[in-house]
Amino acid sequence: MGAIQQLSEATFAEEVNASDVPVVVDFWAEWCGPCKMIAPILEEIATEQDGKVRVAKVNVDENPGLARQFNVMSIPTMIVFKDGSEDQRIVGAKGKPQLLEDLAPYL
C-alpha cells in the first residue's frame, strides 16, 4: 500500500475515476531537476498518508496528450483529482511542509 502508480493515457481515466480517495497526480519528466527533487517527498507522502490520498505520476514525455488535456505547461505540476475531476493545482517544486499545507484539506 502507499505505492506510487505510474499512469498512462490508457489507464489514467480509469484509475483516477475509480479512486475513492483524492489522487495527487504528479506531472514530471526525467530531464526536470526540480521534479527529481520532489520525488522522494512524494514517496514519503504516499506512504504516510496512505488511505487519505493516493499519489500517482504521469511522465509527460511518454504521455504528452495528458499534459495537453490538463494544460500542464510547467513541471512539476501536481493536480489533485477528487471524484474524478480537478480540485486543486500545485505548480512548481516545494518543500514537504508547504506541500503538506497545500494538501491539508485532503489529509
Partner: peptide
C-alpha cells in the same frame, strides 16, 4: 506556470 517560466529545462518541452 501558464506560459511564463523561470526554468527552460523544465518547461521548454511544452
Amino acid at each position: 506556470g501558464h506560459g511564463l517560466s523561470t526554468c527552460a529545462t523544465c518547461d521548454g518541452f511544452f
